[in-house]
Computed example of a mutant assay.
Amino acid sequence: MEKIKIIIADDHTMFLQGIVSLLENEENITILGKAENGNAVFKIMENAIPDIILLDISMPEMDGIEVTKIIKQKYPSIKILIVSTHSNIQIIAKLIRMGADGYLLKNAEKQELLHAIHTIKKGETYFCKEVLDKNDDNNSKIKNNTFFITELSSREKEILILIAQEFTGSEIAEKTFISLNTVNTHRRNLISKLNVKNTAGLVKYAIEYGLLD
């Protein structure tokens, strides 16, 4: 079985060493490197590309939010598992919109960490029970954001944002270098996928989930 290649990033040395000690003897996991800030993640990636990055949010020089944004733009196949003390719904939703694949609190047991890693490697998402319970009223938003990230293509996301910014079909076609017919096809597909009734529903969806941030 091919080993899962992992980079671990956290600015707390003891926690970083603790995660390494939990994972380094796992037969199906290889630790490519450990980083104490976001910039160090990209230094490690100059020599090896990981399958998964275990990522803290609060780090010096470049935080986990910025790392997630860059990774998902440049290396969309790399999975991001956030491991943090934060359980704020706004932070979680923002990271999901950027493409984070999972969220785990730092008090998690080893078995949950391993389960999250293997779940994400399979292409699924993982959000720990504590996060979902604490944000019970927002569970549907977390799930819908996850659906949004996994089900819409990059082109559909782009067009949805342009629609929400009130560009006309012709203007969107010009900006994206596609035909008006293709824009209209994407619009119809978005309405169907997001289960809304019309363009106004698309705009409401984009605003509700913070796509215009």
Results as ranks from 00 to 15, higher is better:
T85G: 08
H86V: 14
H86W: 10
H86F: 13
Q90A: 09
Q90H: 13
I92N: 09
L95G: 04
L95Y: 11
I96R: 08
I96Y: 05
R97S: 15
R97L: 13
M98T: 11
M98K: 12
A100N: 10
D101M: 06
G102T: 01
L104Q: 04
K106T: 03
N107T: 13
E109T: 07
K110I: 09
K110F: 12
L113M: 06
L114H: 00
H115K: 15
A116T: 08
I117K: 00
I117M: 03
H118P: 07
T119M: 00
I120E: 00
I120F: 00
K121I: 12
K121R: 04
K121A: 01
K122V: 06
E124F: 10
E124G: 02
T125S: 10
Y126F: 13
Y126A: 02
Y126V: 07
F127D: 13
F127Q: 14
C128F: 08
C128L: 01
K129A: 06
E130G: 03
E130P: 03
E130K: 12
E130F: 06
E130V: 04
V131L: 03
V131R: 03
D133I: 05
D133R: 04
D133M: 01
K134H: 10
K134D: 00
N135A: 03
N135E: 02
N135W: 01
N135M: 07
D137W: 03
N138Q: 15
N139W: 14
S140M: 15
N144T: 14
T146E: 14
F148I: 09
I149Q: 14
L152D: 07
S153Q: 09
S154H: 11
S154C: 06
R155Q: 09
E156S: 03
E156R: 02
E158N: 05
I159N: 02
I159D: 00
I159V: 13
L160S: 07
L160C: 06
I161F: 04
L162G: 00
L162K: 11
I163M: 00
A164C: 09
A164R: 08
Q165M: 10
Q165G: 08
T168W: 08
G169E: 07
E171G: 10
I172Y: 03
A173P: 12
A173Y: 03
E174H: 07
K175H: 02
T176R: 12
I178A: 11
I178S: 13
S179A: 04
N181D: 12
N181E: 11
T182R: 15
V183C: 03
T185K: 10
H186V: 15
H186P: 04
R187V: 14
R188K: 14
